[in-house]
Amino acid sequence: MDQALIIEKGIFIVAVFAITMLMAMYSTLAERKIAAWLQDRIGPNRAGKGGILQPLADGLKLFAKEEFFPNTPNKFLFVVGPAISMSMALMTSAVIPWGDRLEIFGRTVILQATDIDVALLYVFGVLSVSVYGIMIGGWASNNKFSLMSAMRASSQMISYEVAMGLSIIALLMMTGTLSLREIAAQQHGMDWNVFYQPVGFLIFLVCSFAETNRTPFDLAECEAELIGGYHTEYSSMKMGFYLFAEYASMFISSTILVVLYFGGYNYPGMDWVEANWGVNPANIIGIAVLFAKLCFFIFFYMWVRWTVPRFRYDQLMRLGWKTLIPLAIANIIITGVVILLADNA
């Protein structure tokens, strides 16, 4: 029994990793395609049918590039930087409920690598470690531009983590649990959290843009001022890892957004489907729904990237500390009052 569980989890984890990698790979193509479409162009369409092999071609190109080491005393840290970025982007996927359950060979398979009761804290922990990927990479590059970018990235991520945490507190007061599985299960049908916490969702959305270092908050790799930012000195696959980690973390943060606020795998009429068609079809539709929702958010990330120009550093800090944090605190107070009134009534 135990062995079966290990095999089951092993297969599941490998599948999740593979899907995350695949999604990150095709996000790079999607980004280029969407950028092109929003600018009235066609985008890459030569590698494979409609450019479908473009990510492979990009990967091959990066592999073929010269492996360059700058004149730095921290060769070890130089390699560790991209590794941390990548592994942190992938580690978050462990606690995400990709669906409710499947029944295979008479076993109930829970579609989650691990259901820990502090899943949300784990996510935040991993997120705050991921800043070290950029920080160490920028530091070890032995380059002023990289260091400046690393400073910017870390101060930005730390500032926005505060607002992000506060926006989550209002949600937690409502749900009363830190387990992502339970949070997802509570949003059964159309009972999504976004209808109860629209302000919290908005703050969380803005903060996740900042956490993934995406435009309009991509000051860390602002080309005009810092050349390439923290990955100026990187080449070959180490560079590829940083770029890849950005897309992987974009995928993961869209998933977390969907699970926390947009009902995860829940969709209206899921009880009817489960009663009439069985458990497995209902949950496969659920997984498809989850992916549809998170693909929308990945699209949204890209849509915003090609719409909003980069913030200036002072604007970024003002938005974080003077606007989002007060808003998040107000949201907590209002949520608290409403919960109290609802309980007394």
Partner: peptide, 19 residues
């Protein structure tokens, strides 16, 4: 301002491509 901008860009998704 951002929502307005998003509507402007999404319109371009459906315009004829000049390539």
């Amino acid at each position: 301002a951002i929502v307005k901008g998003l509507f402007i860009t999404i319109r371009h998704l459906f315009t004829r491509k000049v390539t």
